[in-house]
């Protein structure tokens, strides 16, 4: 994967360093070393662990809300009409 390299992960991360990686951790976009370092921190730091759970839930909820927004019921029918017109021209 052509991922741009970022700063290497310190062995013992501070809370701030852990939080800077919360989203990429949740998105499974960290490399295995980084995942280990974050996990190690979360194991002994309940405030960070709570923050991670909160963060995950915030963005999951945003996802769910956006996925529930209105959509015209006849959408596919209208797209079919466009295609039909397009085929005939």
């Amino acid at each position: 994967m052509g991922t741009a390299r970022r700063a290497p992960v310190p062995k013992d991360m501070s809370c701030a360093e852990v939080f800077a990686r919360v989203q990429e951790y949740l998105d499974r976009e960290l490399n295995p070393d980084e995942v280990e370092a974050v996990k190690a921190h979360l194991d002994y730091c309940p405030p960070c662990a709570r923050g991670f759970v909160f963060e995950e839930s915030v963005f999951e909820t945003v996802r769910l809300k956006l996925a529930a927004s209105a959509c015209p019921e006849d959408l596919m029918a209208r797209l079919r009409e466009c295609l039909e017109a397009c085929d005939e021209s």
Binding site: V53, F54, E56, S57, T61, A68
Partner: peptide, 12 residues
């Protein structure tokens, strides 16, 4: 799930 508690205040 405190995040849901907060976000449930929001509609779409």
């Amino acid at each position: 799930d405190p995040a849901r508690l907060v976000l449930d205040r929001f509609d779409v």
